[in-house]
Design a protein around this nucleic acid. Structure first.
Lengths: 186, 186
DNA sequence: AGATATAGACAGACCTGTCTATATAGTAAA
DNA sequence: TTTACTATATAGACAGGTCTGTCTATATCT
């Protein structure tokens, strides 16, 4: 099927982007690693840039899926928010975790007018919005500010874990998050 | 003088690395931007990799200089620690701030055995140690854990500000840091 | 027969690092 | 002051490799 080939290419590219970096991964590498011809790749994706954007989209889809599968929706007070933070931390602690794609991409493409940078920023804000939504439901004092602070902890923990596996950042980030959440209760 | 030329090359390279990214900055770009011949660069630096390592070192020197100029040493309790966090946040909020070099470099060179990645990790740990030293003097309960948590907030704030200028992350990161510090007092 | 995937060459640009040959500056000796 | 020597910087070509994207010609499968 046509979409099977497309998915295959995207999966192979995503794996390479995540482990070696985007700029360090050439199209030839993707092609040979996927066992396909270069023309096939360019049949399904009009450019490497489009492949990168879809990689970011896929990463966001997987992240959201991973979170919503774990977080209950009918919890009261701050329980759901804490669960959400915990779910993100679990996601980060997965041995396959190679960093948030949108963070890595925004650093590899630092210019703000670059399409990849813009899309990365959107996904970073989307994660923040998700956290803010949960914070609002929890009834804390300033949900948007708390969500921002929690996202800083999350992104910091992701960075620390990406730089050095088993840094201990995850567990302590979760504790710090709970401290901030408890301090934000009305 | 010889060191003047060396410093000039390093300064030009640093500016380019910070604004465009390391991998996106070719040696030819550095050379023409510095107004020198390529052989001159290779006379003072044996490879681009060495230039990158010295760029990271320079960035660390400037950061430490910026911090120690602002933080008093004889403050009591958690005052000095809060001042240190505030100084880092000021450093980040500078309009010339383009992200922590060691974070960006560790993402551009993700493989843990890569020399640039290793040096980046060292500087990240050095910053954490500095914070831990101040945390120990402040007499909080678990200074190393607190220092780790504060560094996550700091790196998260740096990332957020790098992705989008004026994100508001800095001010709220500082508030979150103070909350964590106060919660850690014996 | 028609659609799809293949291998492999190719263009044009960029990458790092080295080479040669020339020019410029500063200093020491006459 | 003028000449001669030395160190340093210059421009620019070059090798050998990589990059993205396009092309053609062949093979496979329904």
């Amino acid at each position: 099927m046509a979409t099977a080939m497309r998915d295959h290419i995207l999966n192979v590219a995503s794996e390479l982007f995540a482990t070696r970096g985007i700029n360090a991964t050439g199209v030839d590498t993707i092609v040979s690693s996927a066992g396909i011809a270069k023309m096939t790749l360019y049949k399904y994706f009009k450019s490497k840039e489009q492949l990168i954007v879809e990689y970011l989209q896929q990463h966001d889809d997987l992240l959201r899926k991973g979170l919503f599968d774990k977080v209950g929706t009918e919890k009261s007070g701050t329980a759901q928010l804490k669960e959400l933070v915990g779910a993100v931390m679990e996601w980060i602690s997965d041995s396959e975790f190679k960093g948030f794609a949108f963070i890595n991409a925004s650093i590899e493409f630092p210019q703000s007018e670059n399409p990849v940078h813009r899309v990365s920023l959107e996904f970073a804000q989307a994660l923040r919005s998700t956290i803010a939504g949960s914070a609002k439901q929890s009834g804390v004092k300033k949900p948007d500010i708390l969500a921002l602070q929690l996202s800083l902890l999350i992104e910091g923990a992701a960075m620390a874990e990406q730089m050095q596996r088993g840094s201990g950042a995850i567990e302590h980030a979760r504790e710090a998050a709970n401290t901030l959440i408890n301090a934000a209760i009305v």
